[in-house]
């Protein structure tokens, strides 16, 4: 990637940014958040949780409720409309201009900035090449495929060298295969540019792959902020645990420093009493009857190629999902034993 593409990394700070739309309930509880310069942060959460609203507050398309402030670096941009914030934005529907060609779309922001024509042409060409769009420069938007439109939208946002790149579910409109390849491309691009980026999605796979940190949101609130690993392995609460990946819930009791689940007694630190435990499917292992902690029968086996996902019904308690690597010949009705690694079990508070 050419040096000229390296962009300034501006940190973003949101201070008590809430949003109440006229005539409806509060869409966003007051939120404090610092996004480091050059970091890619992902807002993740179910539909209607306030991801887009937060992004639009950062962009300047929505103003926070009184008292909220948005800072880019040291500059307070709360009162600036989007056209004066120098942000790049990629919309879910792309918002490309149908009355212009690909090259004209990409040149639009440079024209607005009154760049001299030769400089403009050079930067447009450079950007089109970077996004593998060179051969489409003269095409109209309606002559492009979904993936190509997506790349034009990115090119158009990046060519002006924005201080911040904002993306609202940029891959949702594409099919799964294209989504994967574009996700890799976006990842490579964001790392290469070193730009501060905010990415909104409701797809946890996308969030895991792209985010330096993930902000999990629920009902207008932040449920947890952390790296993908933290979110996955140390979910702050039951909501995050269930929303990210698949999580099993196991009932157990603690007595005198030992945790009793199924037939097993495992060393455990924590107060005595009943606990609810969370275990990822890959952290439950098949074992022989002698080593096993929990017995059950296979209710379903789904072959996924690289692994087989079993649904096991234990003698008591809710069904458990177990991932097994390698070749498994298990099928419905087979009896199995499961081992629990206490180091990989979480107790919900």
């Amino acid at each position: 990637m050419p040096d000229s593409f390296h962009l300034d990394a501006v940190p973003i700070r949101l201070e008590r940014c809430g949003k109440t739309f006229a005539g409806s309930a509060r869409a966003l509880e007051p939120l404090d958040l610092t996004i480091r310069g050059g970091e890619t942060i992902v807002f993740l959460g179910p539909s209607g949780c306030g991801k887009t609203t937060t992004l639009r507050i950062i962009a300047g398309l929505e103003s926070p409720d009184p008292g909220g402030r948005v800072l880019f670096g040291e500059e307070d941009v709360t009162a600036l409309p989007i056209e004066r914030r120098n942000v790049g934005m990629v919309f879910q529907s792309y918002a490309l201009f149908p009355n212009m060609t690909v090259a004209e779309n990409v040149a639009y922001g440079l024209k607005v900035r009154k760049l001299p024509r030769p400089e403009r042409a050079r930067r447009v060409e450079e950007m089109l090449d970077l996004m593998h769009l060179g051969e489409f420069a003269g095409r109209r938007i309606d002559q492009l495929s979904g993936g190509q439109r997506q790349r034009v939208a990115l090119a158009r946002a990046l060519v002006v060298r924005p201080r911040v790149l904002l993306l609202d579910e940029p891959l949702t409109a594409l099919d799964a295969k294209l989504r994967d390849s574009l996700r890799l491309e976006i990842d490579r691009l964001l790392r290469g540019l070193g730009i501060t980026a905010v990415y909104v999605t409701h797809d946890q796979g996308e969030a895991m792959a792209l985010g330096d940190r993930i902000v999990v949101m629920a009902k207008g609130r932040v449920a947890q902020i952390g790296t993908p690993r933290e979110i996955y392995y140390q979910p702050a609460d039951g909501f995050v645990a269930d929303f990210i990946g698949t999580m099993n819930r196991l009932g157990g009791t603690v007595r005198g420093g030992m945790l009793n689940i199924g037939t097993a007694s495992l060393p455990w630190s924590g107060a005595d009493g009943a606990v609810e435990l969370l275990v990822r499917p890959e952290d439950l292992a098949l074992a022989s009857e002698d080593d096993g902690h929990l017995g059950g029968s296979v209710a379903a086996a789904v072959f996924l190629g690289d692994r087989t996902r079993l649904v096991v019904e234990p003698t008591d308690g809710p069904a458990l999902t177990v991932d097994t690597l390698g070749r498994s010949e298990l099928g419905r009705g087979d009896r199995v034993w499961l081992r629990v690694d206490p180091a990989r079990v979480l107790a919900v508070p």
């Binding site: 398309l61 792309y94 918002a95």
Partner: peptide, 12 residues
């Protein structure tokens, strides 16, 4: 959305 797109690119 079209207008928001143009605004995000700096157009008044």
């Amino acid at each position: 959305t079209l207008e928001e797109g143009a605004a995000s690119l700096g157009a008044g």
